[in-house]
């Protein structure tokens, strides 16, 4: 649909492209989802523009997540979903960061909701957010090594906080054979 020559982007997307100028390096509105691709170094500037522009007023960062495109470069894609509680329109922001330096600027100063979501992305994907007030793990425990939603993390590699134990009549069972793997898979 969006590929048709006569198709015009929505009013929201047109306005976004107008205010961003050449900072928007790509866009589409497939399935009605207005999407803009930017460069990571422009993130804070772009976000502030989208938040403050009187015809956009994206005052709510609804969701923030990441995608691991393993074997592609740049590897990690960050996805932001913005919402305006005045105009009820939405926008998706995307950009990629390389595996060698998986980091970008924090949006916590602009939207408080970014705080926990950026901690979650750091926890599960290992992407650092510069300027985040306390970038610590939020779901997993501090002893956990690695970032489990990266595609190269073994899917069943658990990291128990203490050794599994057996009692009573089940003492003869070897916990390491409970699932046919070594202790790491328990």
């Amino acid at each position: 649909m969006s590929e048709q020559a006569e198709h015009h982007p929505s009013a929201t997307l047109s306005r976004v492209l107008a205010v961003l100028g050449d900072k928007a390096v790509g866009f589409h509105d497939r399935l009605g989802d207005d999407t803009v691709a930017i460069r990571p170094e422009h993130l804070v500037e772009v976000a502030r523009t989208l938040k403050d522009d009187p015809h956009l007023l994206f005052d709510f960062l609804m969701d923030q997540t990441a995608v691991d495109w393993i074997e592609e470069e740049p590897r990690f894609e960050l996805v932001y979903h913005l919402f305006s509680s005045k105009y009820f329109h939405r926008l998706r922001l995307k950009f990629r960061v390389p595996e060698s330096d998986p980091s970008c600027d924090s949006l916590t100063p602009l939207w408080g909701s970014a705080d926990w979501m950026e901690r979650e992305i750091w926890d599960l994907y290992g992407i650092r957010f510069r300027g985040h007030p306390h970038l610590q793990r939020i779901l997993l425990y501090d002893e956990f090594e690695g970032h489990p939603l990266r595609k190269d993390y073994p899917k069943d590699a658990a990291q128990p906080l203490f050794e599994p134990r057996y009692w009573g009549s089940r003492e003869h069972e070897d916990p390491r054979k409970a699932r046919g793997g070594d202790l790491k898979t328990l």
Binding site: P148, K155, D156, A158, Q159, A178, L186
Partner: peptide
């Protein structure tokens, strides 16, 4: 997976 204990008898 990385998060679940395979049975609380562990």
């Amino acid at each position: 997976n990385y998060t679940s204990v395979p049975g609380c008898d562990k």
